[in-house]
Write a protein that binds this DNA or RNA. Structure first.
Lengths: 236, 236
DNA sequence: AATAAATATACAACTAGACAAATATTAGCC
DNA sequence: GGCTAATATTTGTCTAGTTGTATATTTATT
């Protein structure tokens, strides 16, 4: 009978520490160096223990920063793979949101075409992260014509809702005119934000929203983590 | 093989932003602090990306003022556009088709549930390859209840059309009841059929078609090569 | 002998924080 | 308006600490 490996027992000890609340969700664990001193082993042995825990979604390492307890340790050890079903209409509009960037700048060629803008027109850009239960689900970028919606960005920061912000500018209803979907591989930065591996599957949605008169008011991109999201379409 | 460094990816993203006209010559980029927030990294990582771009003469920094796009506009190769656009309603219904497999067998658990079958019921399975301009675009699998459509497989081979084959069995019209979309990585066999690399992004569509009475008649999977296809949704 | 586990060492990549230097903005004043 | 001084912003530099990766070596088990 093979004796239990050292890294296994280290992993078990740390897992128990987390389960007993000694390290809460979001807390930073001691550094690998500190842990290897505590357990009297080499740093790589600790790393292997942490790697196993990361595989189970219990902890999450950030290079240069540290190893952190995952946000939902309660789901450990089984059933941690939550499947999110999200309506396409709610793309980029889930309640939990984190703003990554806000700016007003000149539109590029594609944006000009999508929003039917004059050359060199300005656009508001609103970029952020959608989360569900503290787990990042998607990165989104919304582009609005700046001329039509002056000061929209402050409303967006204020309300944290595209629908509410547009309502302040007289848009009571808007509909999605077109949606394009394709599969991509995660870039390094997307992977960073979504906490997935680089090259992992990404579901990209590109859509245009129009007001009642048919004028485009939003050009939106959403990059979903393929592992965490299934889009369900309601066919009329 | 080392994965791409984060600063490289940031540099690429900003370079593309400039190339596409989001930041024009002479424009001031967002501050390093703002960029580090946008990309979710430390300021130094952004600085390394900007340093690389400055090395290429794309931007230049002025202490206390900001980072500015160089005056001479750099020509940037536009990424090759997606080759094929496909309507989701016609997913897996392209005229050019290659049959990979045809068989009648017992339904598995998921098929039984999707088609609302009795336990141990038989199903027809029709597996193939969709092509456009001699380029494989998607792999599909259609599952039909065998009891309701005896001899359907020969009709399928005959007509090479799901719609025509079903018409021979009295189905004049059918509609899509549900569609689920997600991103996956190509398996080895899928990669072989689609002539893409193993692990390349795949757009998977799972749908159920029903007849006029609401009875499920087809349970279909389609795996699109993410590089070659963009699905377009028509929103009514 | 072969294999896996653990150690040892070195370097790369990224984070963290602090402070200096240059610039931009604002307020007060003439 | 135009000038100056104070304040805030922004980039430049430095030191230190932490995780990621690669290579080689030793030790224990089969």
């Amino acid at each position: 009978m093979p004796r239990t490996a050292i890294w296994t027992s280290i992993s078990n000890t740390l897992t128990r520490d987390i389960a007993e609340g000694r390290y809460g969700p979001g807390d930073k664990l001691p550094t690998e160096a500190a842990l290897s001193a505590r357990f009297g082993v080499n740093r790589h042995t600790v790393r292997r223990a942490l790697a196993a825990m990361a595989q189970d979604g219990l902890v999450h390492a950030r290079r240069g920063a540290g190893v952190f307890v995952a946000q939902k340790p309660t789901e450990y050890p089984i059933g941690r793979r939550v499947r999110f079903h999200q309506n396409l209409a709610a793309a980029g509009r889930s309640p939990a949101k984190e703003v990554l960037m806000c700016e007003t700048r000149a539109a590029d060629a594609r944006e000009t075409e999508a929003l039917v803008l004059a050359p060199a027109a300005q656009v508001h850009v609103y970029e952020g992260l959608s989360l569900a239960d503290d787990m990042p689900v998607a990165v989104f970028r919304s582009v609005f014509p700046a001329e039509r919606f002056p000061g929209l960005l402050t409303d967006l920061m204020d309300t944290k809702s595209v629908t509410a912000a547009l309502k302040r500018h007289g848009i009571n209803d808007y509909t999605r005119a077109s949606t394009r979907l394709t599969a991509k591989q995660a870039t390094a930065t997307q992977a960073l934000h979504l906490r997935i591996a680089e090259g992992a599957p990404i579901l990209r949605s590109v859509g245009i929203n129009i007001d009642e008169t048919g004028t485009p008011i939003e050009y939106g991109h959403t990059w979903f983590a393929g592992d965490r999201v299934t889009l369900t379409l309601q066919d009329s």
